[in-house]
Computed example of a mutant assay.
Amino acid sequence: MTETIQINSLDGSGGFDAYAAGPTPARAGVIVIQEIFGINPGIQQMVDRWGALGYRAVAPDLFWRLEPGVSLDADTPDDLQRAFDLYGRFDVDLGITDIAATIKALRDAGCEKVGVVGYCLGALLAYLTACRADSDASVGYYGVGIDGRLEEADAIAQPLMLHIATEDGFVSKEAQAAVHARLNAHPRCTLHDYAADHAFARAIGSSRVPDLAELADRRTAAFFRDNL
């Protein structure tokens, strides 16, 4: 069963919706962190999948401070432009506080452990959640901008897995090399490379590469089984 739940922000500025699936109470929760396209059908499909595996799964609407209820199609030019506009106005630091609020909400609902998994912008947020918040395990797919935040890596205390697209049109080879150089030897970090472009593991759409997406998703599922 799926539903929309309400989560209270930690800064007292209001509440925001989250698409939710799976049992409640559940022993463990998974937070799916959106791309720049909002809580669209692809993100909902990912939440449904984690819910079917027995996790309490939620996708918080992180654009709520800009425009609640965004759901865009990456393959539609007008939607793509709108998504980049939202991305340019998005406050990453507030996004992390809203993810922290979502972690708290899942724990308050009975989850003993909570993991996060994010895509593109969501992968940067998953990385920063590992650095700043109290997720029990974090996963990022083809994160954009992680190389500019590597000074925070010393704060990573719980397991982090990153899936890196080596042909990523939004992340240069130099940026990828910097991420590897800083995180390969980190005792809490596991990095995997895939010979693919950005968004290869999107649930639906033209960018999806099924065999690589399925490989990455199997690794993520095993990672959560081991750590949640």
Rank of each mutant, 00 (worst) to 15 (best):
A196I: 03
A196S: 10
L183N: 03
V116S: 01
R132F: 15
R225C: 01
A105H: 06
D136Y: 01
P60N: 08
I146D: 03
V32S: 09
E174H: 12
D73V: 10
H192E: 03
A105F: 04
V144C: 00
E174T: 15
A201Q: 01
Q34T: 15
L53K: 13
Q81H: 14
G118R: 11
I7P: 09
A221H: 12
A83P: 10
D147F: 01
H198N: 01
G115S: 00
G205M: 09
Y142T: 00
L94E: 14
V114M: 11
D147K: 02
A59Y: 05
G122R: 00
L125F: 04
A178E: 07
A165R: 00
D136V: 02
A221P: 05
G95F: 02
S207D: 10
T190Y: 07
C111F: 06
D168K: 06
Q158V: 01
L125R: 04
C120P: 08
D134C: 10
N40G: 10
T190I: 09
F224G: 08
L80H: 11
A216D: 10
R107F: 13
N184A: 15
Q81E: 13
D154W: 11
D17Q: 14
Q81S: 05
Q34G: 11
A213P: 02
P60K: 05
D108P: 05
S206I: 07
T129C: 14
G15C: 13
R218T: 13
A123L: 04
A221N: 08
Q6Y: 05
G14A: 08
L160K: 05
W64V: 02
G29Q: 05
S172L: 01
G115W: 01
R219P: 08
Y119E: 02
A155F: 10
L191S: 13
Y142M: 04
Q81F: 08
A178C: 11
R49C: 12
R188W: 02
I7D: 13
L128C: 04
I96V: 15
M161Y: 11
F16G: 02
I156T: 06
I204S: 12
V47Q: 03
R27E: 11
A216G: 09
F223G: 06
G140I: 03
W50K: 13
P210S: 12
F223N: 03
D108L: 08
A178D: 06
Q45C: 04
A137K: 07
G145P: 05
E152C: 00
I204T: 11
S13I: 12
L162V: 01
C131Y: 12
W50A: 14
D136N: 07
I156S: 07
D211P: 04
T97R: 15
F224A: 07
A222P: 06
E152S: 07
M161N: 12
E67P: 06
Y141I: 02
H192R: 07
R107G: 04
D17E: 14
H198S: 07
